[in-house]
């Protein structure tokens, strides 16, 4: 247990705001740049996965992103294309970036399991991982179907590489909804 629970002292936060009062998760970056969980796990430049937690048999890998800004930036780089081509390329680029976030988060999970051997068993018992992409900027009032579209695209492309035994599900949710969806995990005594 040593060396890990100290990183569970923080309530999961997005945009510097707690997601829910009782929702604790392992904060990869922590407050100290030199002695945080990412450094302790010797993850080097791999900056994927902002938080991770495990509960009810599932490891939750949580990545915070600004989806709206990401989309706008990609669209700018594709401004020379026709509308339908641009949307197709946008979705592909978005998918690639999000795929990398999932792969990176899985790498983090592997390194943590190996590096922090005392936790390896708990992680292994959990078996499968859920990937949560929490976006902090709403891309619009009626973005549900758009987010679902992006998620469906990411999910089915991931399926050709990662079976449900590795990544059980992919969720793309606004940060203010994350607290309702993740199982609460109390802080260690």
């Amino acid at each position: 247990m040593a060396g890990l629970d100290e990183f569970l002292k923080e309530v999961l936060q997005t945009e510097d705001q707690p997601v829910a009062p009782s929702l604790f998760a392992y904060h990869m970056d922590g407050t100290s740049p030199n002695d945080n969980m990412r450094a302790r796990a010797d993850l080097g430049t791999c900056h994927c996965c902002d938080y991770f937690t495990f509960s009810n048999g599932v490891v939750a890998l949580i990545e915070e992103t600004r989806l709206g800004l990401q989309i706008r930036n990609i669209r700018k780089t594709l401004a020379h294309l026709k509308e339908d081509e641009r949307n197709k390329s946008l979705l592909e680029t978005l998918r690639r970036e999000n795929q990398l976030k999932v792969y990176g988060s899985l790498l983090v999970l592997c390194r943590l399991a190996r590096k922090l051997a005392d936790r390896a068993e708990a992680v292994a018992v959990s078996g499968t991982a859920d990937f949560w992409l929490a976006f902090s900027d709403h891309i619009g009032q009626d973005d549900t179907q758009v987010v679902d579209h992006i998620r469906d695209d990411l999910k089915r492309h991931l399926r050709s590489v990662l079976t449900p035994a590795v990544v059980k599900d992919v969720h793309i949710v606004p940060t203010n909804e994350l607290g309702k969806m993740l199982p609460s995990r109390p802080a260690p005594l």
């Binding site: 946008l90 619009g140 579209h149 089915r156």
Partner: peptide, 21 residues
């Protein structure tokens, strides 16, 4: 699950395109 995702994507593509436009 993947089949469902694929079909849903077919059906929501036009909304996605309009949204992006």
């Amino acid at each position: 699950e993947t089949q469902l995702a694929r079909i849903k994507q077919d059906l929501t593509r036009s909304f996605f395109d309009l949204y992006m436009r």
